Each structure stands twice: as C-alpha cells, then as structure tokens.
Simulated assay, not measured.
Amino acid sequence: MIDDIETLVRCESPSGDHDAVARSAEAVAAIGRRLLGAEPERLVTDGCTHLRWRFGDGPPRVLLLGHHDTVWPLGSLRTHPFEVRDGILRGPGCFDMKAGVVMALHAAAALPDRDGLSILVTGDEEIGSPRSRVLIEEEAKTCDAVFVLEASADGGALKTRRKGVSQYWIQVEGRAAHAGLEPEKGVNAGIEVAHQILAVAALADPDRGTTVVPTALTAGTTTNTVPAAASVAVDARVWDAAEQDRVDQAVRSLTPSNKDARIRIAGGINRPPLDAPASADLFALAQTLAEGLGVGPLTEAAVGGASDGNLTAGLGIPTLDGLGAVGGGAHADHEHVVVAELPRRTALLAALTETVLAHRSSSAATNARGESGAGQR
C-alpha cells in the first residue's frame, strides 16, 4: 500500500491541470488493474478524467467514492517530498486523498465477491465537482450504501455530518472617473462592494453554525481612478437545508446601496448538507465491525468541510464519510498519514463493503424464494 501511495503522490495532479489529472488517472488505473484484474472505464467530461470500475451485471449496490485530484500545484514535490519516517507518511495530497484511493482499491481486491460493487474516482472534487457531479449522482442512485474515502477527522473519527456549501460571486459595476480631478462624476464600485461585503457577512448565524464569509476581493485598476468594477467571492456553510435556502434567497435579494451602481450575483448552492440520519445506520455497522476486527472504538465527527458524500446523501442514499487515511494536515505543509492505520482501516472498509453486498444478496435470494413459493401456492 505504501508503494502504491508513493506512486500516486509522485504523480502530481492539481485539479486545474487536465493533462496532469489524466496522467494521474493512468497511474490509478494501473494500480487498479493490477489489484482487481480489470480495466476501468475512463470517463472524460470537459477534459477532466475520471475512472470507474463496475462489477456484476446489475446496477451498483455499493459505491466506493474518491478523487485523485489535489490542491497542490505542479512542483510541490520539490518542497514537500514523499517520505516515510517514524511511522508517518508525507507528501502532497497523501492525506487528501491519494491514500484513500489506494485503500479503496486494496479493500475491493480483498472481497471474495465484488458483484454489485462500483468504484468511482473523480478528478475535480477539490474545485467543487463541477464535471463529475452528474456521474456521482447517477452512480449512487441505485446503491444501498456509499462509502467515501475522504480522510478521517481528528483522531481517526468518521465523518457522519457535513455542512452544506454555497459559493457566490458578487460583481459590482460602477463608473470610472479621475480620482483627483472629478471623483464626483464616478460611481465607486469599491465603496459599493464594501457595502455588499457587510450585508453578506451579516447573514451569518453563529447560534445555528451558519458561516457566510467574504473571501477573494478585487476592485479598481489604478491608484488615481475611481473603480469602475469590483467583485467579492462569498463562502457560505450551513448545517441544514432550511438555512441554506435562507442564505441563498438573501444573497440573491441584495440591492445596491448606490442607485447608480449595478450588482450581479453568480453562483449558488454547491452541495447540500450531509445530515446525521444519512450516516447513522452505516456508522453503527462500522462500530460493530470495528470491534470484531480489533480496530478499536470508532468515533464520529461533524465537520465544516464538504465532500462528494454531500451529493450522495442529498439524494437520500445512506452515506458514510471519512473512511480514508488517518492523519492530518489536509492542504497544509504538515499533511501526513499514520502508516499503522492503513491496513486496519482498509480491513474495516472491506468488511463494510462485504457486509452490505452480502445483505443485499441474501435479501434478493429471500425475495426470490418468496415469489417462487407464492407462485406454487
């Protein structure tokens, strides 16, 4: 597993570089081909390469879901080299989530029967899954369970609840003028966007865990010109769908404070919340299996970050997230994986998958016997 993780980490794959993502997809495909004896489908959407393995003749019943793109730019290995030392594995993207991809493939390889299993590894999760969302939702809709190989929360906790995410871009159109000679003839887009920043920030509700954060900001062109244009990005995160709708309606209802300025709102709801009920039964199953495997007591966590698990949970599909690597430092200089946990957590994933697949098979057999007996009667 360490060798396979090294292969993927050394094949850098920033989300915005389609060529790099395509090379990474081939590295993932080669590992899967070796372990599973099967070639994946290469699904290219708008230039971005995703991989899918399906086993059996019927629709998928269990989906192992992950991504092979990272936030790390090409050349990151020069400053953050791959290494394993004192039981800790390091390298750009190792925790989020190339180790998780390797775990999914090794867990699938350990299954005595893969009938009904699907593995989907996408290439654009870190930028919000704009090209893979339809693939994910189509693949999940027939499933009894989705297991997401995103990295665990602190201390190895599984992620049983995630905030929903909305992303907006507020664009302001003003009118340029010379800042020294006749500023009164301009419409200052910088001042207007400042009013909009205060308005959206006021939509936050700490008591409900709702955050609405203005982030990337631009305004103006030169130091002696009244800004004719300005924009601000807004990141909103909520625990429940009602809050997500409230914030969405409020952002779309923003009006200019200066009647001569114009504003346009782009973006919207990106991922719905992953609510606790979507993961409750699968987490209980994981706890039982972990005890039998000697993996240790499992804990759960609610986190502000979103994943593709939000999409499948939003469809009403039972979804358990955070089944990937144990470690920390996602997107940061100290990104790392605890090596000793790799085989243990992979064994848990295999047991979860096998149990759900076996339950589906036994239920189908019971139904078939019942239908046959009814006909004889």
Rank of each mutant, 00 (worst) to 15 (best):
D113P: 02
I119C: 12
P206N: 05
L217V: 12
K185E: 08
G164I: 03
I127R: 15
V121G: 01
R162L: 04
D205T: 03
D115F: 05
D154W: 03
E173R: 15
E192G: 05
I197E: 05
H106S: 10
N188E: 05
A201I: 01
K185R: 15
L89H: 00
G155L: 11
V146C: 11
R162D: 01
A109C: 12
F147T: 05
R85A: 07
I197T: 06
V172W: 00
I191N: 00
G209T: 10
R133E: 14
C143H: 13
S152D: 06
E173K: 14
E83K: 10
G190W: 02
A201F: 00
L149I: 15
L203M: 13
A176F: 02
T218N: 15
V148W: 03
I191S: 04
D86L: 01
G100A: 08
L149E: 08
G116F: 03
V193I: 12
G220P: 06
E139M: 13
T222E: 10
E184T: 12
D144S: 15
T215G: 09
G100M: 08
G116P: 05
E83F: 00
P183C: 11
R162H: 06
T221D: 14
Y168G: 11
A157H: 10
K163I: 02
G87N: 08
D154E: 14
Q196W: 02
L203I: 09
V213Y: 02
T218K: 15
D154R: 15
A189H: 06
T223I: 08
D207G: 09
D205W: 01
G186F: 02
V213K: 13
Q171G: 04
A104H: 00
T79N: 05
G128E: 11
G186M: 09
T222S: 14
A219Q: 12
T223N: 04
L77W: 01
L117W: 09
T215R: 14
I127Q: 13
L89D: 00
D115R: 15
A177S: 15
S166A: 14
A202C: 03
A177I: 09
P81L: 01
E137K: 14
H80N: 07
L77S: 04
A153F: 04
D115H: 13
C143M: 13
R78L: 00
Q167L: 12
P92F: 00
Q167M: 09
A177K: 15
C94W: 00
L181W: 02
H106Y: 07
A204H: 04
D86C: 01
P112R: 15
Q196N: 09
S152K: 11
G87I: 04
A176W: 03
T211I: 11
G123M: 10
A216D: 06
P92K: 01
L149G: 10
I119T: 10
Y168M: 09
G220L: 12
P130D: 09
A194S: 13
